[in-house]
Structures are given as C-alpha cells and as structure tokens.
Write a protein that binds this DNA or RNA. Structure first.
Lengths: 213, 213
DNA sequence: ACATTATTCGACCGATCGGTCGGTCGATGA
DNA sequence: TCATCGACCGACCGATCGGTCGAATAATGT
C-alpha cells in the first residue's frame, strides 16, 4: 500500500473485461466505443490509446476468450486416459468454463456463427482463428480415437462436433430464453449440474428407447 | 395480363424478404434502414411508409419466420401418431424448413439468444413471442407423451428441448464456420440428409458405447 | 534533477444513423 | 372530371458513430 498500486489489473485488461461483457450481450455492432469507455470509467480517447480500432478491440476480446478455452482444454486432455474419459473431460471443462463466465459462452457462440463482423485481416483475428482451430482439433482427435478404439459409436465426426457445440455452447449462450425455458437461471449451480447429467445421459443412451430388444 | 399486374409480391413482402436476408446475416444493429431500402430497390422514405420504425420492421420479420415454423409444425403434429413418430416429424419438418430457407435458421437462432434487441412492447414482438411459445409447447407435448408412454427415455424436458434446438437450429445457423467444419455447404442436399441421419442415430443410440453389456 | 514514457482527457471531425416532412405520381371510384 | 388514396421520393434533421489530435498529467529510470 505504497504510493501507487501497480498490483491492480492493467487498464488494457479492464477494457477487455468490460468489452467482453458488452459484446457478449449485444454483439459487435450494437455496442459503441463510448459505452465501453464509460463502463470502464475512462474517456473514449483513452480507450483508443490502448486499442487502435473498434475491430481490433473486438478481435482481442474474442482472442482472449478462445485462448482461455484452448488453454483449459489442452491442459485437461494432456492428462491422457481413454477416449471416452477424455471426451467426458472435454465436455466437463467446457461446461465449467462457460458456467463460470457466462459472457464466454455468448461470445464463443458469436465467434462461431457471426460472419465477418470484422475485416478479418487483423493479426488478433487470425490468432483467434488458429485457437478456434485447435479447440476443434482437440474434439476431432478425441472422437477419432474413441471410434477407432470402439469406445464410441462410429459417426460423422464434423457433424458430431456440431452436435456437441450445439448441446453445450448454445445452451449456455441462450440467455433469457434459456432461463425462461428452464424455469430459473441456466447458471444456477444445480442447473449446471443437471445440464451435465442430461448431456451425459444423452451421450450414453440417446433419447428414443429401442423397441423389440 | 390486363393493365396492372397486381399478382406480384406486395411491396411490404418484398421489404420483409430483403430485411430477413440482411438481419439474418448480420443482426439488427449492423443493418441500416437505407441498406434494406437499397436492397429492395426503393428509397428509405418509402420503406418508412410501410413500417413505422426499424424495430417494428425487425419484429415483423421475426414474426413472419416464427409464423411459418409454427404453421408447419402444427400441421405435421396434427397428423397424430406415436410420440416417437411425432418427434421424428417435428425434427424432420424443422430441418427441412431451415435447409430450404437458410435465413430462417439464423434469424430463429437470433430470436432465441439475442436479448432485448428491440423495445419488446411492440405488438409484433408480442405476437412473435406467442408463436415461439407455441413452437416450444409442441416439443413439450411430444416429449411428455413419449416419456409417459415409455417410448422415450425419461429426461428433463426443458433441457431436452435445449438439446434439440442446439442440435438442429445452431447447426443450420452456423454459416461459414459450419461450412468449413463440414467441408462443404451445410445446405447441400446430401449434407442435409446426413444431418438427419446423424441426429436420428444420436437420438436412438447416443454416442458412447456402453461397456459390459 | 531531468528526460522519457505511459495514461488520460477535451475538443473536434466527417460520416452515417433512424426518422420526419412536404409533396409528386398514377390508379381507383364516383 | 374530380377527389381520394397508396406508393414513392428528395431534402433535411438532430444525434450518434468511430476515430484524430494536441496537450496535460502521472509514473519511471537515470
């Protein structure tokens, strides 16, 4: 507690956090720079000192989220285990991460389905793309191994990845609609646990009961 | 073929079609009124002759999509059959509709996960909400019946609905990302058929193979 | 002590935003 | 023939957009 406290969060990170919250909720176009600056507690011009353009700020925000997702997935998959175990952990880690940081889920979904929100020649955008590729590659490897080992039913891998994204990411990005449908916050800890159980039951048993067995 | 040809599409519908295409691709905030007007081939002021505000135009666009979804689902479910059959048709109709009109999928996903894009007191918005409720209610009924009849595994119904939305709507809304992941257009007819097969296999068998059976 | 660097800011810019207004035009009906 | 009406448009409005610039201030290294 001397004169200046440099142990605090850097202004750059404070901007990134505020930007993530706003971009996640309303998207790139609907959020103004001045609004982000106000939320951080600085002037618009100060914000432009840390990020050259709005597009660069957005790309950096997305990159930051994807970096965290990639890091956690890489870490958990490095522990090895059977393909079924690794798939379990891939799902578990992704759910925990999005349940912990709701804005991540929405920004992740946006980065998947929004088209060219930004110019796509920014270095931050390219780095984010590479991280997304790695995240998908993780799923790809686990599914390939599991099917080769006979632990997983043989299915089309890209479609299976889309299914996993839809089941996990969409759910935690569904906001008010999800809350209304479920009946309480989709981020309530009991509801997150229930989501895990439901997903695992789906993966293990499907939904339709086979007749004539 | 007399003097005037009134059998053409009304200007209102031409606007709605152009607006859907643009709103679906880039969202409410990123699309300007003048851009829509230009796409229709009329001036901005003419557009405001047919719709009072941008928000009203957006609400009407969403309402139009939900009306079509609701209509087709109501129609196919009215044909009756076992719960498993009706679930099959619910899925099939939804997939066919979105494969036929890609913009529908993206606008539907936006209407689910985008928060208060518009003021929410517009009558068009409330009508759209009611249609969405009916669509969900259809799924609710089918799932409840199926579980009661022992045709479907007993699961949490709201979570199961989220899963179905994620599997179907997200996939067809995933745009460029989906195309890249799958390797060709997700709307290619072969790929749509494959999606149906994959979803049905998932519903019937899950993904993980149970050991020790 | 000084120079350097990082951080912040107010004032300002051209462009575009959603929306309004007054009025033109052609078709319709009496 | 004349009044009405829906469709359409150009000109314009205040507000906000993303972004620039020059200067003031605070922190740091020497």
């Amino acid at each position: 507690m001397t004169t200046t406290n440099t142990a605090e969060i850097s202004p750059r990170d404070r901007i990134l956090e505020a930007a993530e919250e706003l971009f996640a909720r309303r998207g790139f176009a609907a959020v103004g720079i001045s609004e982000i600056a106000e939320s951080v507690g600085m002037s618009k011009s100060s914000l432009f000192h840390h990020f050259r353009t709005k597009a660069q700020l957005y790309a950096a925000t997305v990159d930051r989220v994807l970096a965290e997702v990639d890091l956690e997935l890489t870490r958990t998959l490095a522990r090895g285990g059977s393909a079924a175990d690794r798939l379990d952990r891939w799902i578990e880690v992704l759910i925990d991460l999005m349940a912990r940081t709701p804005a991540h889920a929405r920004l992740l979904l946006r980065s998947l389905f929004e088209e060219d929100e930004i110019s796509n020649v920014l270095p931050e955008q390219q780095e984010a793309d590479e991280k997304l590729q790695r995240i998908i590659q993780h799923a790809n490897n686990v599914l390939r191994d599991g099917m080769a080992q006979g632990e997983l039913r043989v299915a089309n891998i890209p479609h299976t990845i889309q299914t996993l994204i839809g089941i996990i990411v969409y759910h935690f990005a569904s906001g008010e609609f999800g809350d209304e449908l479920i009946g309480r916050s989709i981020f309530h800890s009991d509801e997150v646990k229930r989501r895990k159980r439901e997903i695992k039951a789906f993966l293990h048993h499907g939904l339709v009961i086979e007749r004539g067995l």
